[in-house]
Simulated scan of single mutants.
Amino acid sequence: MMKKIIVFMLVLLSSTLCLSSCSKDDDINLSKESVIGTWDVTWAEMDGESLDVPAGYVYITLNNDGTYKVVMFSDRYSGTYKIEGNTVIGTTLDPITEYFKFTKLEGDNAEIDYSNSEEDFYKFKATKR
């Protein structure tokens, strides 16, 4: 009986360790090196509707000097940014605050939840040039 309890405890402990080591979206810690460059949005979703985005129509350029530019079709925004955890927080010259929360980052491919202080919300899939 005692042997079964010990085996059960070991199984429980190992499964707990396994589950606690699995990564979550919030576990992504961005570095400047991982995000610097131009991210071409290839897919976007707004209000549950998805759209394949033609190349060059929507992109985000993050520069090493802390400046950035966003192009969304004919709209262009620029400003400065900082990185907090898995989120790039930009402030445009208007000023509008933009949040680019990286929910998945695998090499040059990312999934980003975008929101801003004007209450716009989008989901993006992007590839770094």
Rank of each mutant, 00 (worst) to 15 (best):
Tyr68Met: 07
Phe100Ile: 03
Pro95Asn: 04
Ile96Gln: 02
Val71Thr: 15
Val88Ser: 02
Asp75Ser: 14
Tyr57Gly: 13
Ile36His: 09
Leu30Asp: 01
Val70Ile: 14
Thr103Asn: 02
Tyr77Pro: 01
Lys4Trp: 12
Glu118Phe: 14
Glu106Arg: 14
Asp94Asn: 11
Asp65Trp: 14
Phe8Thr: 07
Lys32Ile: 09
Phe121Gly: 10
Phe8Asn: 11
Gly48Glu: 02
Ser31Met: 05
Thr67Ile: 06
Phe124Ala: 03
Thr67Gly: 03
Ser31Trp: 03
Met72Pro: 09
Gly107Tyr: 00
Asp120His: 15
Gly66Pro: 05
Asp47Leu: 10
Ala126Val: 00
Thr80Leu: 06
Thr103Ile: 05
Ile83Pro: 00
Asn29Phe: 10
Lys125Met: 11
Ala55Met: 10
Ser14Leu: 13
Ser34Cys: 01
Thr127Gln: 11
Ser34Tyr: 01
Gly107Thr: 08
Glu49Met: 09
Thr61Gln: 13
Ile96Tyr: 11
Tyr122Leu: 10
Ala55Asn: 11
Val11Pro: 12
Phe73Tyr: 14
Ala110Trp: 02
Lys82Arg: 03
Ser31Asn: 03
Thr92Leu: 02
Lys128His: 00
Glu119Phe: 12
Met72Thr: 15
Glu84Gln: 04
Gly85Ser: 06
Asn29Gly: 06
Asn86Pro: 07
Thr38Asn: 06
Val41Asn: 05
Thr38Ser: 09
Val41Trp: 06
Asn64Asp: 15
Ala44Val: 07
Thr97Tyr: 04
Met2Arg: 12
Pro95Lys: 00
Ser78Gly: 08
Ile6Asp: 05
Ser78Glu: 08
Ser31Glu: 07
Glu119Arg: 15
Asp94His: 13
Ser78Phe: 06
Asp113Val: 10
Thr80Met: 06
Gly56Thr: 08
Arg129Asp: 15
Ser14His: 10
Thr61Tyr: 05
Glu98Gln: 11
Glu98His: 14
Leu19Trp: 13
Asp120Tyr: 13
Ile112Cys: 07
Ala110Phe: 04
Ala110Thr: 06
Glu84Cys: 06
Lys125Glu: 11
Gly48Ala: 01
Cys18Ser: 12
Tyr99Ile: 00
Ile83Arg: 02
Thr61Met: 09
Asp120Met: 11
Met2His: 09
Glu98Asn: 11
Gly85Glu: 00
Gly107Gln: 00
Leu62Asn: 00
Ile5Leu: 10
Tyr114Phe: 09
Met9Glu: 11
Ile60Glu: 13
Tyr122Val: 02
Thr127His: 10
Leu17His: 08
Thr42Glu: 14
Asn109Val: 12
Lys32Phe: 08
Asp52Met: 09
Thr42Tyr: 10
Asp26Thr: 11
Trp43Met: 05
Val71Glu: 10
Ile96Trp: 04
Ser34Met: 07
Asp25Gly: 14
Ser117Ala: 01
Val58Glu: 03
Ile6Phe: 07
Phe73Val: 14
Glu33Phe: 07
Ile5Tyr: 08
Asp27Met: 03
Ile89Thr: 04
Leu93Ala: 10
Val7Trp: 11
Tyr68Gln: 08
Asp65Asn: 11
Thr91Lys: 05
Gly56His: 01
Ile28Asp: 04
Asn116Trp: 00
Glu84Thr: 00
Ile112Ser: 04
Lys104Ile: 01
Tyr81Glu: 00
Tyr122Ala: 08
Val71Phe: 12
Lys4Ser: 09
Met72Phe: 13
Asp40Ala: 08
Tyr99Thr: 04
Glu106Ala: 07
Cys18Pro: 08
Ile5Arg: 12
Ala126Arg: 01
Ala110Asp: 05
Lys125Leu: 13
Cys18Val: 05
